[in-house]
Design a binder for these strands. Structure first.
Lengths: 214, 214
DNA sequence: GTCTATAGGGTGATAGAC
DNA sequence: GTCTATCACCCTATAGAC
């Protein structure tokens, strides 16, 4: 079998190995706490090689940031538009998609929070294309919620509360799992995942009750 | 007027000034991204003096950590026990207390999340007294929820979901405010606080609906 | 492309004068 | 108690051999 440029598992190109290592460490520890030496070691290569491929720590970080932000937004943006759904269907769709993505990338919320905190993520940075996507996603959701309200299908409430609640209930458990589960261990990890899968059905129900006109 | 050791505003003792500066910077930027030189400058004193009072960056951080964790837990622990309340009263109490505390310390959740991420916060560190308080608080809440269920006062549901939802809806908006509000500015800051105050009444209602036996 | 060696600057901590 | 000066180490980035 001939080797193509992008193989899948451990047989990555040097460039891919570095990127993967960087993604892992930046995501787990944030920008400041991650040393380029650690990335090089994790990738199984030399420190000089990292700069050969990616010029600087900052550039490498920005690359990882773009990819992570795309992941964070991409799952939803592709489908939220132009697909008429009842509120319950919409919730089932958004929540399901998002929790699935987070189960595969449980550290992603930490990464995003680090971005916000470190200032690498600027909400008024008009150049960043992914930021536009976030703004767009937010606008799309708020528009959807307000339409539903005007059509009398759901209770009237500040749509930001709805968005906040949905995001909160989906994302927060992933960042606070160590507090929620108290003593973490293998058992707890499995139990945690079981609960998160349960939430794929529960959160839409709770959201529905939240806006139900009785 | 004679000066006592602890005056309030800008006339703090050197030790207090350093601690306040450290608290501010560690909370905003995390451990790794905060330089001891920045703390010294923020406190308006010299770098050497920081080490004179607190021996090392690590020691200073641990002090700030203990105080912040106490703040994070203390507001609730003093009262959750031994005060029989209906589920709605309990929610009103916990949510109100917590949001008030966060409005005064909006960066606190970031600090805690940094702790979790950096490993300074270990859920199996039995020595840490504040950690015991967190565990205790968690146990107290779960016990309360299960009693309510057994007495048939609220719907049966895994109590961790309840705790997760309450914590999520209270805390998450504070860590994601920049995403929720999109373009942050002075106007948005006021609007954000208004929404959070609104949530002091709304979250208990949503929690109540969540467990209502219909 | 990949390595070793090292430059160049930052960072935590201390010595020692006042 | 508070300062200036400085050490010793660590970190990012690059030069240069292979």
């Amino acid at each position: 079998m001939a080797k193509k440029k992008d193989t899948v598992a451990k047989d990555l190109s040097t460039e891919e190995k570095i990127k993967a290592a960087a993604k892992k460490l930046f995501t787990q520890k944030g920008f400041a706490a991650t040393k380029t030496r650690d990335i090089a070691e994790e990738a199984g290569i030399n420190l000089a090689l990292l700069n050969y491929y990616f010029r600087s720590k900052e550039k490498l970080f920005e690359l990882v940031m773009r990819e992570n932000l795309s992941l964070f937004v991409g799952v939803l943006l592709e489908d939220i538009k132009n697909t008429p759904r009842s509120f319950e269907e919409q919730m089932n769709f958004l929540v399901g998609r998002y929790i699935d993505m987070l189960l595969e990338n449980p550290d992603l919320p930490f990464f995003i929070l680090n971005l916000i905190q470190s200032g690498h993520f600027q909400t008024d940075d008009q150049g960043n294309p992914v930021l536009k996507e976030i703004t767009q996603l937010r606008a799309e959701f708020l528009k959807y919620a307000m339409e539903q309200m005007e059509q009398g299908k759901i209770k009237k409430i500040h749509p930001l509360h709805l968005m906040a609640n949905m995001m909160s209930m989906i994302i927060f458990p992933f960042i606070a799992s160590s507090i929620l589960m108290a003593r973490s261990g293998i058992t707890d990890r499995k139990e945690f995942e079981r609960l998160m899968i349960e939430r794929k059905k529960l959160i839409p129900q709770w959201m529905k009750e939240m806006v139900e006109i009785r």
